[in-house]
């Protein structure tokens, strides 16, 4: 109570347009979804906001739908809903695996996928799977909607392409025939932990040849990243132990980790190799 966040004004709009109008009109206003990042940041004054616009009651921003070609996940959808969704289970097992590793049940019942992406922490755990799925992000502003591929979404350390006054509306993921996937997250303790490194891999293998592969990692660069060079190396090649090892080494050379209180650059690079090796082997079906 006493070391809570500063006094704030609070709005809880019912529609997206209402929310956008308040954001445009009221100075110093900021979107709040689950608040699991924002309130922590406000407590420590990393973020200062006077007005909060709560988007949890905006129906357009919530829910998971199977739209045939695309799966649509509303930005304000709770992580726990994603974890429990049959659609996600069936079509997006990689996303499910990542979400399962996030926070605790209590946190997942507050936290949203949109909040995770918009905070744009290098350690964001929904980012590697969504990068691997090549998700498209729909951003709403007063002037309408724009669609940004996730590869263009993170613009720097804790920065995104979402402008002031805009709201991330939803995440679109194209259904695609992947033959294998794998996700690994390493934290400083066994569970309920932020990542030191996480790796996500999607693969399509046909007659032992890599048709397509996507590799994404977090906590090894200023933003979550794709390992494009390693993907390039793998595409069209016949799967094998040496190939996977070589690709994992390329992954380790593509990352640019730093030393911080959570880990060291050396260890993160070593683990980028390790996790890439693990996830690639599993997704490609290599012993």
């Amino acid at each position: 109570m006493y070391y809570s966040i500063p006094k704030i004004e609070y709005y809880r709009p019912k529609t997206l347009s209402e929310a956008l109008e308040i954001l445009a009109k009221v100075e110093d206003s900021k979107v709040i979804a689950g608040g699991t990042d924002l309130l922590v940041d406000m407590k420590t004054s990393r973020v200062r906001a006077r007005v909060l616009v709560d988007i949890n009651s905006v129906a357009e921003l919530r829910g998971i739908e199977d739209g045939g070609e695309f799966i649509r996940i509303g930005a304000a959808t709770k992580l726990q809903e994603i974890l429990e969704s049959r659609i996600v289970s069936e079509h997006l097992p990689l996303l499910k695996a990542a979400v399962k590793s996030m926070g605790s049940w209590q946190i997942r019942n507050l936290a949203t996928v949109g909040g995770n992406l918009c905070t744009a922490s290098p350690a964001a755990d929904t980012a590697p799977p969504l990068l691997a799925y090549d998700a498209e992000l729909v951003i709403a502003g007063l002037s309408g909607l724009r669609v940004v591929p996730i590869s263009k979404f993170f613009t720097g350390y804790r920065k995104t392409t979402v402008n002031r006054g805009e709201i991330l509306k939803e995440v679109l993921i194209r259904k695609s025939g992947w033959t294998g996937w794998s996700y690994e997250k390493l934290g400083r303790r066994g569970g309920f932990t932020l990542s030191v490194v996480a790796a996500a891999v999607l693969a399509r293998v046909s007659s032992s040849v890599v048709e397509d592969v996507r590799i994404a990692l977090n906590s090894v660069a200023p933003t979550p990243i794709r390992a494009y060079r390693a993907e390039e190396l793998l595409r069209g090649r016949r799967i094998g132990k040496e190939l996977v090892e070589e690709a994992a080494r390329v992954v380790a050379s593509e990352v640019s980790p730093i030393d911080d209180v959570r880990s060291t650059s050396w260890y993160r690079r070593e683990m980028s190799y390790r996790l890439a090796l693990e996830t690639l082997s599993r997704a490609l079906g290599v012993e």
Binding site: V40, R189, G190, G191, L194, V261, R262
Partner: peptide
């Protein structure tokens, strides 16, 4: 307690 990690029920 984000950066100073202590054990949980998992460990």
């Amino acid at each position: 307690l984000t950066d100073y990690v202590i054990p949980t029920a998992h460990e």
